[in-house]
């Protein structure tokens, strides 16, 4: 379990202010982040892994400053992307999972054993030698998850990991996430996925507008959506 501390974190891309004045202290085991497209929630997730650098303020994972010690932070924080296709970097399942361990320069046998163990745990051992692009969407996301878990991170950050999946695969991936012993920060559109989480953040226009237990936070988010719909004349 890690402690994620945002201290006055802001992010700008050129003139656009994506996140502004974020102060957070996250220690819960299950943290959900919801918000509309373009609200800044994906950027919030990317900050934790150092994929995006704060333009102001700082972010600490335990005592590691993400901006300075990105390498060490990324060993502790795994990241699962929306589109597994862009997370799979090697041609076959086994090679892709092993890729995560490459910078650690482990002996071949140990790499192999760890890869097999994680493939087995996620129930995709039979796909080990398949080309990654022949997998189904759900299998690809399981592979992406395996490739992250093989590095044994303390924290898992996931940016809408179920959005591109059909309902059945989305449920399967959500179930896998639920059983993880790790701390999880899940960014999602599917509000049901975070309903039993410990803490839910609502992001809107680059700010945290609600930070509470799932019940009140999600209720707030629903009201926010209703208000926006009313302002724009309802859903088209």
């Amino acid at each position: 379990m890690a402690r994620l501390r945002f201290e006055g974190v802001g992010v700008r891309f050129g003139d656009a202010r994506v996140l502004d004045g974020i102060d957070l202290d996250l220690t819960e085991r299950r943290i959900g982040v919801v918000g509309a497209n373009g609200s800044g929630k994906s950027t919030l997730a990317r900050l934790i892994n150092g994929l995006v650098s704060p333009t102001s303020g700082r972010l600490l994972v335990d005592d590691l400053d993400v901006a300075r010690e990105g390498r060490a932070v990324r060993r502790r924080v795994g990241f699962v992307f929306t589109n597994p296709d862009s997370q799979i970097v090697m041609p076959t399942v086994r090679e892709d999972v092993a890729f995560t361990l490459r910078p650690r320069k482990l002996p071949k046998a140990e790499t192999s054993a760890r890869v097999d163990a994680v493939l087995d745990r996620l129930g995709i051992a039979h796909l080990a030698d398949r080309p990654a692009h022949h997998l189904s969407g759900g299998q690809k996301q399981l592979l992406a998850l395996a490739a992250v878990l093989v590095g044994e991170p303390d924290v898992l950050v996931a940016d809408e990991p179920t959005t591109l999946l059909d309902a059945r695969n989305a449920r399967e991936i959500a179930a896998r996430f639920a059983e993880l012993p790790q701390q999880v920060l899940l960014v999602t559109h599917q509000l049901g996925l975070v309903a039993d989480f410990d803490r839910v953040l609502v992001v809107d226009a680059g700010r945290i507008v609600a930070d509470d237990e799932p019940g009140p936070a999600l209720a707030f988010y629903e009201r926010l959506l209703d208000a926006e719909d009313a302002a724009s004349g309802g859903r088209p």
Partner: peptide, 24 residues
């Protein structure tokens, strides 16, 4: 777009330094 996502994944998976280290 695919390449940019792939590049991000490379950093996330520890294959390379991220934007912050480059600046440092």
């Amino acid at each position: 777009q695919t390449a940019e996502e792939l590049g991000e994944a490379l950093i996330a998976r520890g294959a390379d330094d991220g934007p912050s280290e480059e600046r440092v």
